[in-house]
């Protein structure tokens, strides 16, 4: 499998504070890679920089091409797509218009397959079909996340970056969302997943990175990470405490 995304030496600074420091990571075509770490470690900053929303130093190459200086809009049309932590939906537009806008760059290229993709998104999230005439701002938290995912899928991404897709959602819905994520890989979409729900993320991912204070602290195949004592202590600590007490 070839590398779809290859990041080297990435640094992002806000004013004088360095939020991401010399990060190197890669995503193989067709795989799910997760980045976990505590709040404030720089995960959201990292994704925003990969999307081109923040100025970053270092090198980002995508599908074999250097894209460090490419604008976000162009990254979208090359198949890079970010579902941000805050979803960033168009609250006073209908669900359907939100999906239409997801395919904005494809309308510009007069892509004929857009109609078929609508069907696919509605099939994946029947709730969105029921509510297609409703304003996005009136949706519940889970529906908003579905719409954010649906809007992203309308752009036909090759690499989908998800920032905390489980944020603020009930366990049942989190399960649905993760099922969709796992299913996407089957259709050939590669995924870079940032999660605070470390356990869930490591279960679904092939490979994982632990980000701490802006730097990659640990990396490895998900299964290895899930049993790495340092990861267990820091991020699955509650369980560790639990098992210690139980044993």
């Amino acid at each position: 499998m070839s590398l779809l995304l290859d990041v080297r030496d990435l640094c992002v600074t806000y004013g004088k504070v360095e939020a991401v420091h010399r990060v190197a990571l890669s995503v193989k075509e067709g795989s799910i890679v997760t980045v976990i770490g505590p709040n404030g470690a720089g995960k959201t900053t990292l994704l925003a920089a990969l999307m081109g929303m923040l100025h970053a130093r270092g090198s980002v190459s995508y599908a074999g091409k250097e894209i460090t200086r490419v604008e976000p809009e162009q990254r979208v049309s090359r198949g890079l797509c970010l579902v941000p932590e805050r979803r960033e939906l168009f609250a006073t537009m209908t669900v359907e218009d939100n999906l239409v806008l997801g395919a904005f760059h494809r309308y510009r290229k007069r892509d004929k397959a857009i109609t078929a993709d609508f069907e696919q998104v509605y099939q994946l999230f029947p709730r969105l079909h029921e509510r297609r005439r409703q304003l996005a701002g009136t949706l519940s938290g889970g529906e908003r996340q579905m719409l954010a995912l649906g809007r992203a899928l309308m752009s036909r991404p090759r690499l989908l970056m998800l920032d905390e897709p489980s944020l603020g959602l009930a366990p049942l819905i989190v399960r649905d969302i993760f099922r969709v994520i796992a299913g996407l890989r089957e259709t050939g979409v590669s995924i870079l997943l940032v999660e605070q729900n470390a356990r869930a993320a490591l279960q679904v991912a092939d490979y994982g990175y632990v980000l701490e204070t802006g730097e990659i602290a640990i990396e490895g195949p998900s299964a290895d990470l899930a049993s790495d004592p340092r990861v267990v202590e820091s991020y699955l600590g509650l369980v560790a405490g639990n098992t210690e007490k139980a044993s």
Binding site: M53, P72, E88
Partner: peptide, 12 residues
């Protein structure tokens, strides 16, 4: 409505 959202769907 949402400048960031618009950028993310490719509206510059």
């Amino acid at each position: 409505i949402n400048r960031v959202g618009a950028r993310l769907v490719g509206v510059s």
